[in-house]
Design a protein around this nucleic acid. Sequence first.
DNA 1: AAAAAAAAGTGAGATAACTCATTTTTTTAC
DNA 2: GTAAAAAAATGAGTTATCTCACTTTTTTTT
Lengths: 231, 231
Amino acid sequence: MNTLEGIRCHSCSNKSLCFFSTLSEEESAFLAHHKREVTYKAGETLYKQGTSSQYLIFLLSGMAKVFIEGDDRKAFILQLVKPFAFLDFPAIFDKDQLYRSSVAVVDSTACLVDIDAFKSIILSNKTHLPNLIRYFNQIQHHYTSRLVNVLYKNMEARIADALLYLVNEVYYNRSFRLDLSRKDLAELAGMSKESTSRILTQLKDQEIIRVKGKQMEVLDKKYLEQLSKLG
Amino acid sequence: MNTLEGIRCHSCSNKSLCFFSTLSEEESAFLAHHKREVTYKAGETLYKQGTSSQYLIFLLSGMAKVFIEGDDRKAFILQLVKPFAFLDFPAIFDKDQLYRSSVAVVDSTACLVDIDAFKSIILSNKTHLPNLIRYFNQIQHHYTSRLVNVLYKNMEARIADALLYLVNEVYYNRSFRLDLSRKDLAELAGMSKESTSRILTQLKDQEIIRVKGKQMEVLDKKYLEQLSKLG
DNA sequence: AAAAAAAAGTGAGATAACTCATTTTTTTAC
DNA sequence: GTAAAAAAATGAGTTATCTCACTTTTTTTT
């Protein structure tokens, strides 16, 4: 969901910066002078809600969570970002403000792109515009489905959705080593960590999922999809 | 929140189409050939979630609600749109899909702009891009605050937020005739209509608001702001 | 203007999810 | 490899909000 189809570039895995598939030679060269590569340890903050940033962060390795912080330590995870994609955009034409926080879930590396350089490229080359607007639309759609999730679905359905999200859009596999803590998983499902535990054991007892610490496997994906719909 | 600062044009009230303040003479003339004006009665659907639309709807008079429909008649109002602003955008570079529904709250008139015409303008003139991106950022921010609202706030705070939204961003006045039904107000606050009624009478008894049918007045705005923060 | 229909308000009981306390398991540190 | 610390799981009791049934008020229709 959070990958920018067409905006990513496969050579990014080779660490040469290149985030628009439509990026020209000159643009690549231009950006090369306005980027720097940075490493983050698990738990480190990339963006902090309420501040601003002069960089766009393009993830090269690892994983980051994008979340909103409420008062008293409450948080809600909006999305998990994996390479090769941009992290949650600062409001680039509105003082570069950040309305959401981002933290590395595992050790990660990222490419920091100067916002002014980015602006000059999207303003000078219209071929990037469709991808950009498509990205904003996807995010908007994702956020509204997250809203429906917490508003109308019960705990079972919310956990089902969280698991399906991990399988379909994060690990691309029914079996995965969860990099998130149970608290993170709870914040992804929008509920308490205790309730998350309870639902997980319940699903385990029903043999819908197999859980062994961080290692997880979805045995009955159809059932989870049912849960998601009915709840 | 949902007005497009700089994208609206005061002559719109004169029914000449003009949605970018930066729109050139030629662009205006071009758009004039790709728009039509339509009237909607209260309750009529402008956009239907799950379909697509080849038009952007620019509101000229009246008011519309943008909402997500859950199953069994449940709904959640994301925003109220007033003139002169665009209604919730279809995914213009993604098959023009609609992920949210819109319905006229009162009798309204709108200008329907052909998406292809709109596209050709934003692709040919880069001066519109900042406004467009600013708009998407505002919406994103609005949606995340709506999320925080329903996730972390209690009923009092949610009603307080709804009332403050009406005062600050819809009617621009502490005293207003509410065009929404109590059910709509409930869907704006993300709770049941019964609970909405109860909180309203409670606030009335505390003399925080004055309610007489559709007519409402916020007497103690500070208190509502307190409620919003603490809840 | 009266009757009918719809919307709004109220009360009581039900329930989903949370919180707090405790135990068990896993991870980290020495 | 053992001890300490942190994370996860479990249980019991609490609570915020919803649902359903009923009453009152407002709006619409004739």
